[in-house]
Design a protein around this nucleic acid. Structure first.
Lengths: 212, 212
DNA sequence: GAGATGTAGATATTTTTATATCCATATAAT
DNA sequence: ATTATATGGATATAAAAATATCTACATCTC
């Protein structure tokens, strides 16, 4: 029995469902509710109750046998599991339309992310503030990453620029990249890349339309 | 042996991978290449060659036994499967930051989507053009949907407004909704909703960071 | 207090998806 | 021509995920 026995390898799908639970639980918590059951969560999220039960079980959310799950405790369990209970300092590279949209999304504070800087190469963007976040020139990446101790990069540059920026980020010691460019990034082992591909969702929608 | 035997029920994951193949194939096609193998695609996309082989097999992409897959034919097969070989007229509701970013994304033309109208309620947005697309008031939804024979809705409104707009869209006969609001939409059977949840990807990234 | 009810917990089963293995064959090198 | 090689095709295996089933128990109703 090792210290690593805790690692039950929670499935990716489970992880992707957690934010959905969180949203509903936040809502209910705001109304002063204290307990919620899998079946109630199922009604709200349209996810089968058995799946919810297993997901919450997997991350060790505290529950009461008959009464369901404690809302406050479940929120804490999810936040803790995702590391959303304390803020990671992040920055954004590529302050174009999408970048600006992300900078304007206030919800990240609830998601463990605090975007404290933005970078771009366009002269008309550099030096401005977008939604309260200063835009630096990309040339300053290294110094500011070190200075502000930034950990997570949000990449919203055009596809052709993505790999070049990534190489710079890796050289700066960044270990986590949230990539919105439609490019598969090559990174050394130990660097986590989360690919956000808008086309995948559209493909799903279109395929569903065609077969229907 | 029915006529429906063709329906091999292609997996969602396969569908979500198709756009990745497409991007690489477009690129190679642009260079005048004619043949590509699973292993080559695997190198470029970092997807295991066996998966690629099965995916392309599943949608019936034409191939040559030894030489690999015909790039042109594979592109056609994917485009045809996804219905991306002819444009669907779409519109966008919610011309905020994210909406504007999507309107500025020219790539949709390659993805079977042509956004020909936008809607919003803010007086300062209504009447403007964003990236060449006119912004109408949401009150005009019904008439313009019918007038322009629009089929697909892209929903980029704030969460609280999403369900209300959805009800209107359903009443207008819209059958496909691409939803970027972090809300699970309730729709009648027969209406396809594709949920785009940015928090899921972030959760994946954070969980990956924590367990590493 | 007794029983009905709905819940989490644990386990088992099924389904889906990914991965591996072997084979026939077209191509390229010799 | 001959051989080596890399590929798609087909099948089999493994892994992952979803779903079902059963049990024990806390709460509620009467």
């Amino acid at each position: 029995m090792s210290l690593f026995s805790k690692k039950k390898s929670i499935s990716v799908q489970t992880i992707r469902r957690l934010p959905q639970y969180l949203r509903v639980l936040y809502d209910w918590h705001g109304y002063g509710r204290e307990l919620a059951s899998s079946t109630e969560l199922a009604q709200e999220t349209q996810i089968p109750p058995i799946v919810i039960k297993k997901d919450l079980q997997a991350i060790g959310a505290p529950s009461k046998m008959r009464a369901g799950f404690k809302i406050k405790g479940t929120i804490s369990a999810i936040e803790n599991f995702l590391g959303w209970d304390n803020l990671n300092k992040a920055f954004l590279v590529g302050a174009g339309h999408l970048g600006a949209a992300l900078l304007g999304f206030s919800g990240f504070k609830n998601h463990g992310l605090e975007i404290v800087a933005a970078f771009d190469t366009h002269p008309e963007r550099v030096g401005n503030e977008i939604h309260g976040v200063h835009v630096y020139h990309t040339a300053q990446l290294k110094s500011i990453i070190e200075d502000k101790k930034l950990k997570i990069a949000v990449l919203t540059v055009p596809g052709p620029a993505a790999q070049g920026i990534t190489d710079t980020l890796v050289a700066c010691g960044i270990k986590a990249i949230w990539n919105f460019a439609p490019v598969k990034l090559a990174v050394p082992k130990g660097v986590v890349v989360q690919q956000e591909d808008i086309a995948s969702g559209l493909a799903e929608l279109c395929a569903c339309l065609k077969t229907k």
